[in-house]
Amino acid sequence: MKRLSIILLITIIIMGVLSVGLVLGGRFLLHDKGIPLREQLIEEESPQKIMTFFAHPDDEIAVGGSLLAARKAGHKIILICLTKGEAGPTGGLVERENLGEARALELGMVAEILDAEQLELFDFPDSGLSGVSLDTIKNLALDMIQKHQPDYIISYDSQVGLYGHPDHRSVSLAMEELFQEKFGNTGFPVKKLFQVTLSPKQIKIALQLAPGFQKNYPVEGPGLPFPDFAVKTTPYFFTLENMMDAHASQQEVFRNLLPYREEIPTVIYSRIFDREYFSEVKVFKN
């Protein structure tokens, strides 16, 4: 019995060492130490309104940990989504003609998990937003800002759209232009616009492993904006997985976004993919 106890102890120690090594190695491959790491997206302790402005149901997953942390801190979350995502994969769970409504329900479940104050879901054409005038999207963005009075807004970046999706770029460019035009004006409450981005190491790995990046990420041009900071997400990763599970039809997308998540235990994975990166849009006014 004593010998078995010793063997068990040695096994536990070896597994612990291997796990620590895997976490440290993964962090080294994915994250740049020079990028500041925060516990929260925003610094205010008084309740603030954070509004996301995205093209598709499931886009919010890219910042899900930061939203969960903000909600726990007492801030209010508003989700704005311009399409029902009817052009995405079905996951073999629903007929193509019913996908939009199914994804609308999935996003509704995510809003409940986040305890979002409001979800606004529109019916612009999925994978067709580049054909919608920029002024139309800007007018919608302004309507949502005037209606919900957010203090902070999160979108994708306007150059790449995270991995090259034209819908992401269109929506984010409209929000960025609106922010540049209206910031500081009377009746425009937004203090900061944050854009989702990745660390240079993450981009390098994504181009090696993720088909979506390999197919769509631009090989020329400035690429994704360099992060101003990252938000620590490990404490919220289990709930973030619940949010991903709610998007049942989109598991293929998440395997692309978070490779090997199903093969690596969550307790380890959450410590490797342990942060979300943001760039703050700078205001340029004459």
Results as ranks from 00 to 15, higher is better:
K191W: 00
K182W: 11
Q48R: 14
Q202I: 03
D245Y: 02
V132T: 00
T90M: 08
K285S: 15
L82A: 03
P189K: 02
G26R: 05
V283R: 08
K72M: 14
E220H: 03
S155W: 00
D157C: 09
E117W: 00
V23R: 08
Y260C: 10
V63G: 06
F54Q: 00
H75A: 04
G26V: 11
G91E: 02
K192N: 15
A73W: 01
S66Q: 00
L30R: 03
L119A: 01
L198W: 07
P47E: 02
N139P: 06
T234G: 04
S172Q: 02
E86T: 06
K33T: 07
E280T: 14
P166Y: 05
D157K: 08
A230Q: 13
L67M: 15
N242W: 00
N256M: 15
L29T: 13
F284A: 01
L114A: 07
P150Q: 11
D228W: 08
P259S: 00
L224M: 07
L193H: 02
N216K: 11
F122A: 01
Q195C: 08
V281A: 04
V231N: 07
E252F: 10
G131W: 06
F53M: 02
D151F: 07
V171T: 08
R261H: 13
E117M: 01
Q118V: 14
P235I: 14
D157A: 11
D58I: 05
I12G: 10
V190C: 06
N139L: 04
T266S: 02
E177C: 04
K33Y: 07
Y277G: 07
K72E: 15
L82P: 00
A111R: 09
S127Q: 14
G25S: 13
